[in-house]
């Protein structure tokens, strides 16, 4: 490893950013739960992030030759979040597609996973600190 912060930390940092975005979009959906014609928005990043983190090892396999082109994305910083109108919502009389219960559940889940990612980052930083302080001595 040639960097202070490895791929996992980068991935965690990206994921808390995306989770913040999902939190904001979900909050917007909840705020607009009664707005006529409003379409519930959805944030997608999991697949793009796992591709960028190259969990399946695709980009290593694909660049064994100088002429090969990498299949994987250009690192975590290149991940683009997809925000789109959620096609799953039921249409109500006022053409609003927000499902309040689903949004609340999504919000709770998102907060928990956000905090989980934060804890992992803190563990990573704790390990660095431990090493930097010469094993706590």
């Amino acid at each position: 490893m040639n960097r202070l912060f490895d791929k996992t930390t980068e991935g965690l940092a990206a994921s808390i950013n995306f989770r913040l975005m999902r939190n904001n979009i979900t909050a917007a959906n909840i705020a607009n739960a009664e707005t006529p014609n409003y379409k519930a928005k959805k944030v997608d990043f999991e697949k793009a992030l796992s591709r960028a983190l190259d969990i399946e090892g695709l980009s290593q396999a694909s660049t064994s030759h100088a002429d090969h082109q990498a299949v994987g994305a250009d690192g975590v910083s290149g991940v683009r979040v997809d925000v789109y109108d959620n096609p799953e919502g039921n249409l109500s009389n006022d053409k609003n597609t927000v499902d309040l219960e689903k949004e609340m559940a999504k919000l709770a889940e998102n907060t928990i996973l956000y905090k989980a990612a934060l804890q992992l980052i803190n563990k990573k930083l704790g390990a660095l600190k431990y090493a930097a302080t010469n094993g706590g001595r």
Partner: peptide, 25 residues
């Protein structure tokens, strides 16, 4: 109910922000 839902959303945003302040502690 809609008001309460917004309060909950606000609460969880606040929660997230507060725990983000704990990074590196």
């Amino acid at each position: 109910r809609a008001y309460e839902a917004n309060i909950s959303a606000m609460q969880s945003s606040k929660d997230m922000a507060m725990s983000a302040l704990e990074i590196g502690r």
